[in-house]
Nucleic acid binder design. Structure first.
Lengths: 151, 151
DNA sequence: GATATAATTGAAAACAGTTTTCAATAACTG
DNA sequence: CAGTTATTGAAAACTGTTTTCAATTATATC
């Protein structure tokens, strides 16, 4: 079933604290700077570049440095909590990671994003493996367009 | 119908001369440097970064400069002859442009690429539009894996 | 063919985004 | 609460890309 999806407040809270616990579990310290990066990205409704995260993060923790944004993103990405988004016009933005078999719908104007499920590419994937000789490990399915506000 | 596809020698020749004619048609001059970039990329079996194109292009035209590689790619991209490839690990490589409704299958090891047709995402696209309120303009479907040689 | 002219070139400089270095700071442990 | 050690931000270094500019060269015209 197709299912577009916007995060609720509770889900965001859970995501934020979940990310912080995962960092702590790994032995990383929870600092004001990391908390700021986590807060900004966990509640983002759009994909954000490091510079945008830096800017928004400074509202929460004014001495935040851009370097720390990069370093925190690196750790969150390693833990699979965050991932980079690729778009036709560039691929320097981050979003909370997709879970399981989710895919992306992105607004080309404002960067707003939504997740959805409901495709089934397994048959196509199997056919392709047969014809090409490749072993397929992964796939991307992304839709681009204009969100309701931007139309 | 799914249809994976490797370019034959003739197709490559046609592609090369096609690209050069398109450049000429647009009033661009056909120079040794442009010819080198076109030759390298038109016959590439893998996606290539500007630096790789530069390196291979110098074998054909030894005074080729990296700057000209960028400038030529820009023009080829404007004309829709070439496009950038996005991959999980980065998006700084170029390939001959997909035509119509083609999609990509990329080897994560060596960068080898193949095109295929045969998906039908129009129904999914329509459902998503209804649920999300987006107007969908475009989509990406890409598969990643290991080619026969790299397995 | 030779010539004029305007696009194109490559090298160097400038630029933007990202990463490294390093001394100062602050989070966790006991 | 004090000690240890990860983490921080600023500055410097780096990488990939773009701009500047004088010299070169493809094309149109004779």
């Amino acid at each position: 079933m197709t299912q577009a999806h916007i995060s609720s407040e509770e889900e965001i809270k859970e995501r934020t604290s979940g990310w912080l616990s995962r960092l702590a579990e790994q032995g990383y310290r929870i600092t004001g700077s990391r908390r700021a990066v986590v807060d900004v990205l966990a509640e983002a409704g759009t994909s954000l570049s490091p510079a945008e995260i830096y800017e928004q993060g400074r509202a929460l923790h004014k001495q935040l440095g851009l370097v720390t944004v990069y370093r925190t993103l690196e750790k969150l990405e390693e833990l699979g909590l965050v991932q980079r988004v690729h778009r036709p016009d560039g691929c320097h933005a981050y979003i909370p990671a997709l879970h399981g078999h989710e895919h992306l719908l992105l607004c080309q104007q404002c960067g707003r994003m939504e997740y959805f499920r409901g495709d089934d590419l397994s048959e196509l994937s199997r056919r392709l493996e047969g014809e090409s000789g490749y072993t397929i490990k992964d796939h991307w399915l992304q839709f681009f367009g204009l969100c309701a506000q931007c139309q």
